[in-house]
Structures are given as structure tokens and as C-alpha cells.
Design a protein around this nucleic acid. Structure first.
Lengths: 200, 200
DNA sequence: AAAGATAGTAATCGAATACTATCTTTCCCA
DNA sequence: TGGGAAAGATAGTATTCGATTACTATCTTT
């Protein structure tokens, strides 16, 4: 087996670069990740990165596209794996938790991009991701209201905000504890309270 | 009136510096705030900052101390302004929301510090703040359970996590909307769901 | 096998950054 | 009121970062 062939086709090299950034973001503040650190982590020289990306910003854009694609796909799969709105919500919640546990750098990158001043392709991608996430949640919540599974007077927009916020709270707790795995255990209790809050 | 006397006593200059950082954090990514930007914002030369702080890290430490002091004091005041646990929680929630609306940079700085690699005085201060916040919440929640106002089987740790997460979710929404004031309106709906989740 | 295309290396550049050294202004009070 | 200390301005330094360049190695096509 040859773990690291020196020369990689451009698309493979780009994929490896994205993975490197995601892995590094799990260990340090995303905004402090330098191109030198990325290159070192994938055993490449710093300048070589720019053979595949025109700029550092383009790297971030590619990373955010990777995140949006993967996360939304897993949420969608989870949503379709259950057959009642409440079960759908729980599946989506746990799918997101699993994703975050696998890639602890992702929420840091997302929040970091969102609070960036001005606009950038990466920031726009993050905004689109969260917006689409919220819309998907609102749809499930509306369905739950229609089927009588949820409080008919529920504020769906607030409930969607709370859903994402709940996950962020769990992420913050795992940051404080320095233990990524604990998020799985804490997720159950947090979702239980959330479910009571929106149920009838 | 003289808005900007050139020479300020050291302690006043330090206070003005902290305010400048808090204001700048409301406009841009805190980790991208340079000493030059801080100095420019308070109409001072960059080198003069180091007459009052030994390093940039010391500035951050002072800022985090300022945040912890003010936020905890406002939460405590809010907690004591109400006379039932649930009312206390709501008052604390709204006090935090008010604080964030006044200082939109604060949650960014806190989250940014928490996800910093390694340790620093500023990061330790942020950790202490969140820990004490959680403990205070847990105390009110326990009181609510004892008095029968809350679900007797409530997981207080999860409820405290959710409380803070709810606020983070609102902060994220205000970042997306680019409108700090909307957080006041959204806060009511979010807290209503939270209250249902923990009530009996 | 020749030859062009693709990918990587090593060195380096300019800009930006935290921090410092030296000179100047302002304030305060004995 | 004059002199010293505190505070600020000016002009640096060393380092780091993203990006570029000249050159080399490897792969692919004909």
C-alpha cells in the first residue's frame, strides 16, 4: 500500500485539501489555520496548494461547499428515514449530532464564517446552508402541526431557531469539556426538553 | 464639551481601550481585530496602546474580565428582580438578550475564545464565565423543581445547556439577518418554547 | 521513446502584524 | 511657575502570512 503517492490528480488533491482543513479545524481556531499548516498536514509544500486553488479564500469556499453538501444530504436522509414529523425531527437532530461528532471543526467553521465582516463566497455558502436548514425544519414542523403531533399554536420559525440553537449549546458544552464524544450522551436530554417544548 | 482629550489617565485609557474592542467586535470577526485597528478606533497611535497593556493578550484578558463582570452582574440583578424560579429564568434570559443587543460583539468574542487551541488567560476567563453561568442556572432550575414549578424529572444540566444554546441560536439568527434588534422580538417566541419544555 | 501536460519544490516577495526605542507634548503640583 | 513624570507620536524591528516564480519530477499521450 502506498498511503501518499507524491503526485495526485488535481481533483483528488483538492479533495485531500478539503479534508485536511476539516481535520485541522477540529484542533484549532479555523481563522488561525494558515496555508502552511494545511500543506504540512497533507505533507505538501505550501506553494503547491496554489496550483489547485487560486487563493486561500477559494479553499474556504470549497470547504464550505463540502460541508453544506454533506450535512444537508445527511439531514435529508435522516428526515426520510422516519415516518412521523416528530420522529423525523429526532432523526435529523441525531444525524446532525453524529455529523458534528465526526467533524468537530464544522460548527466552528460555520460560526466563524457567519460572523465574518462583509461578504465572501464562503460566507454566502454558510448563509445558504443555514437558511436551507431552517426551511427544511420549518417544513417538518408545519407538517407536525397539521398532523396534530405538535402544538397547533407553535411558532415554527422560533422552533427552527431553537432546534439549531440546541445543537450549538451542545457544541459549546463539548468545547468546554474538551470531550467531543460526550455530545452524544448530552444530546438525548437536550432533545427531550426540546420535544416537550414543541409537543402538544 | 471635549469628547476626546488627548491625554487620559492610565486607568481611563484602559477602560476606553476595552470599549473600543467591544465596539469593534460588533462589526468584525474578533480574531481579526488588530492593535492598529483598536488604536485607530480610539484615535490613538498603535504604539501608545503598549503604554497601558504589556501585550495584545493582556488586552483580550481585560476585555473578557469586563464581559464576565458585567454579564454576571446583570444576570444576578435580573435573577433577584423576580420572585419565582420561572420568572427568574425569564428575567435572566431577557437580561442576557438585552446585553447581547447592546454589545453584539460579546457572543462572538466568547465563542471565539472558547474554541482557541491551548490555554490563555482570556480563554480561562471565558470558561469560568460560562461555567459560573451554568451553575447559577442550575441553582434556579433546582429551586424551580423543589417548588414544583418545573418538571420534577427535569435534567437540570441539560436544561442549563439548552438555556444558553437558545440564546446562541438567536444570536446566529441575528447574524444571518444582519439585524441586531430583531433578537428582541425573536427572544419571546424562543423562550416560550423553552419554558414549555421545562415546565410541568 | 519523444514530447507535452500536470503536479511539486524551494526560495522569495510584499504586505501586515505585534511589539519596541526614542523623541515630543501635556499635565500637575511643590 | 518651572520641572519632572505620565502619556502620546514617530519611526522603527522581527516575524509571519498569502502569493508568485523559476525550476524539477512525474505522468500521459501519441
Amino acid at each position: 500500500m502506498e498511503a501518499h503517492p507524491k503526485h495526485l490528480p488535481a481533483d483528488e488533491r483538492r479533495a485531500v485539501t478539503i479534508e485536511a482543513v476539516v481535520e485541522l479545524a477540529a484542533q484549532q481556531n479555523p481563522s488561525e489555520i494558515t496555508t502552511a499548516a494545511i500543506a504540512k498536514h497533507m505533507q505538501l509544500t505550501q506553494g503547491a496548494l496554489f496550483r489547485h486553488f487560486p487563493s486561500k479564500e477559494a479553499i474556504w469556499q470549497a470547504v464550505m461547499e463540502w460541508v453544506a453538501e454533506r450535512l444537508l444530504a445527511r439531514l435529508e436522509r435522516a428526515a426520510q428515514s422516519a415516518d412521523t414529523p416528530l420522529a423525523r425531527l429526532e432523526a435529523m437532530f441525531m444525524a446532525h449530532i453524529d455529523f458534528v461528532a465526526e467533524h468537530p471543526g464544522v460548527p466552528r467553521m460555520l460560526f466563524g464564517e457567519l460572523q465574518r465582516a462583509g461578504t465572501s463566497p464562503a460566507k454566502r455558502m454558510a448563509q445558504t446552508l443555514v437558511r436551507r436548514y431552517g426551511e427544511r425544519l420549518a417544513a417538518v414542523l408545519a407538517e407536525g402541526k397539521a398532523q396534530g403531533e405538535l402544538d397547533p399554536d407553535l411558532d415554527t420559525a422560533a422552533a427552527a431557531t431553537l432546534f439549531i440553537g440546541t445543537i450549538q449549546g451542545l457544541v459549546m458544552q463539548s468545547l468546554l469539556a474538551g470531550d467531543v464524544e460526550r455530545i452524544h450522551a448530552d444530546a438525548l436530554g437536550a432533545f427531550a426538553i426540546y420535544r416537550r417544548g414543541i409537543g402538544r
